[in-house]
Write a protein that binds this DNA or RNA. Structure first.
Lengths: 233, 233, 233, 233
DNA sequence: CATGAATGAGTTTTCATTCAT
DNA sequence: CATGAATGAAAACTCATTCAT
């Protein structure tokens, strides 16, 4: 386990020893916290490292957050995209094909996950769900459910117009979302430690994902697997 | 999908102490360790808990593993499916359509991930990759690469026979694998803490996944996204 | 006996900040300090609480006292009745019986200890004597010794006039003083936390104390404990 | 504030680095704790000092007590004389004068307070009552109330037999108990820091106290303070 | 004068690790 | 082999003190 990268070069700081910035502080602290929590997990993160990375002292953290747990919760809440109304609005857009809407939805989400900060959240939630169940529920309610709602509206519209074939919708949505989730977790875990760079190209990944999803949804001329007995209860 | 099986109640272990065979110990320890590491992460796991869950004393752990890190590595290595030659053999099977092989491959992997123990591994690797890069590489080499090799062979054969259309193969493989990975992580993190049970049905999930994958790979009568400019560098 | 007056609610302080005169500050600070030190002891008292109770900021305390120790010493010195010359004068009063003087002495002291602020001092001295020996000596010199001097003068006069019988005088003085000391400590410690109000009535307590003291001092018709061998070395 | 006396000379310890003494430990720890808590108060006591004085490491304290508060409570409870049935039995003794019983009661209590360990408790309770109200109630119930009950029985018997005069009984009991309480607090606070040794002699103190109490209780030939208006409500 | 954000030394608390039994 | 009491380094947390505003 390697040492943390050293805090931002102190010599580069020209500000006075400390400064009153009660309003700017929280965001800085939470950004530093997100980094360290992402790297080490909740238990492995040291408050001292977070403080150092934010350029403040340990004690300062306690001026803003009562303890490590509160800091962690605030970190996640701060960086969870709280509003997905954009996606919901998109789902209601008229005059556009369902295929086009679905593509936009997936591209929009992919872009959001491209943001370095936000993209760390899914991994963090997955990793710490056992220790912070309320955060897991919060994420499920505030993000997953809302995304799925928009997603569902688009799929249902496509089925209604005949653009998409009918599929078990809840499962299909999870299947379509999975590549993006996995990609964001991959970026924050295994990818940085591979010796040879990945052959996966993000833009091509997204294009292929959209291509495959649309192909998979397209109404089939023939039953996909003739004579195949599919066993869902 | 049901809640995860709760950890074996230590009080419920009734075998007398002397009955435990020395050679069975390591497996018992590693099973307990996997549970606790999965629940709490590496840093959050307490050796005392692992020992208690295995029904031994703290000191006993040190008779088998030099320290916490070694225990963690052994835990992961023990539960990583060490050989995927079965999949590689599958890929070489003659006289079967590539579609059928692909279905078998995905079903085989899904079943493996259905095992409670093995299914915890991906989450653990993702969560601790930063702290244990060598494990990340180990997993990439021993599992991911070998699975991808079999997967690639099948896809290439399908393209050669005209069963599958050509797609950016590396990206496509990740897309096909993602739903299974996500499912296994979901089971070990968020799912157990949702108030209302998930609407996702595992068997239906797998069937839908296979259905969609095969549909997505099927050669298209028309260009999938006509007039669409795809931007991969 | 009622519960102690609660600390002045800071929210209830309505004077505008500018109205506070600089010269009134120290007294306000020391009053707040006495309350907090009495409740929590020296180590347990937080300067932040003292400042808040005085309605000022933490930094302001340092404009008046160099550090916590100085503040504590100033607090005690401020509230120790600095001069007991009144008692000494009393002791020299002519034309009054020693019994009367003794009653006045005890009533005077009891009244002084009835004052909420002063009455906290004995408890504080007792509690912190180990940490602030110089304060213990200061209190012994400035208060105890002077009180005892007046007390001794009165007793000796009563013995000389035949009003009082001879007793080991130093011990007798401590015995006479003890009830008042204990009462003041009781009020500031256990009493406020009892579930049912005490049956002790302060006025009756003082009257009984005076009654018993005078009776104990009255020359006895017979030796107090006939045939009793008293063992003082 | 001076440094703590150093822990028992390590060179004098011939035992191995550590030893299993799960049964002997608690008493040792609580003895050390009582000393340090008495000297410094709850907040001022450092667990490290307590551990050092008990000859163990900091961590060992946590094997026996969950935290500082629990250690403190256990310390007080351990050293509070839990049973005062002896006094209650005494009060029921037949064929002895009430005066004699009262003398025995006071001598018995004085002896108990003469024990170095127990004698520190009253000071501790008084000092920390605000921070540990439940301890204050515990002490009031388990010790004070029981002592007062025995005390009350003896006084009432003496009044019934005509040995004692009637006095406000609750107040009188507190007055009789006060010298002993004060003495024990004095010993643990101011006394050790006086430059010149006290003139108070403990044995003479006790004898004088008994003498005065009995004299004060003896039925008076004349009204104690003729023409005196006593103001109890 | 007064403020209160910031600091960091000092304490409490945790827990991986050791080792006499 | 197994135990679990004991350890002590490391991390969380507190709060007296400072000082730019």
């Amino acid at each position: 386990m390697s040492a943390l990268p050293s805090p931002p070069d102190p010599a580069a700081r020209t500000e006075p020893r400390w400064q009153r910035r009660k309003d700017a502080r929280p965001a800085e602290l939470l950004t530093a916290a997100l980094e360290v929590f992402t790297e080490r997990g909740f238990a492995g993160a040291r408050l001292e490292d977070i403080a150092a990375r934010a350029g403040v002292s340990k004690g300062t953290l306690y001026l803003y957050y009562a303890n490590k747990e509160e800091l962690f919760k605030a970190t996640v809440r701060e960086h969870v995209v709280p509003s997905l109304t954009a996606a919901e609005d998109l789902a209601r857009t008229e005059g556009v094909s369902a295929s086009q809407l679905l593509e936009w939805l997936l591209r929009g989400w992919f872009e959001r996950l491209g943001d370095a900060k936000v993209s760390a959240i899914p991994k963090l939630i997955i990793s710490e769900a056992r220790n912070f169940p309320e955060l897991a529920r919060f994420y499920d309610t505030e993000v997953v459910s809302r995304f799925r709602k928009a997603h569902r509206m688009i799929l249902e519209r496509g089925v209604a117009t005949g653009e998409f074939r009918a599929l078990p919708i809840e499962e299909a949505m999870m299947i379509m979302a999975a590549p993006m989730m996995l990609m964001s977790m991959w970026r924050h875990s295994i990818l940085p430690h591979l010796e040879q760079p990945s052959v996966i190209n993000p833009a091509r990944f997204l294009d292929t994902q959209i291509d495959m999803v649309l192909a998979a949804l397209r109404p089939q001329p023939l039953p996909p697997i003739p004579g195949k007995k599919v066993n869902h209860p």
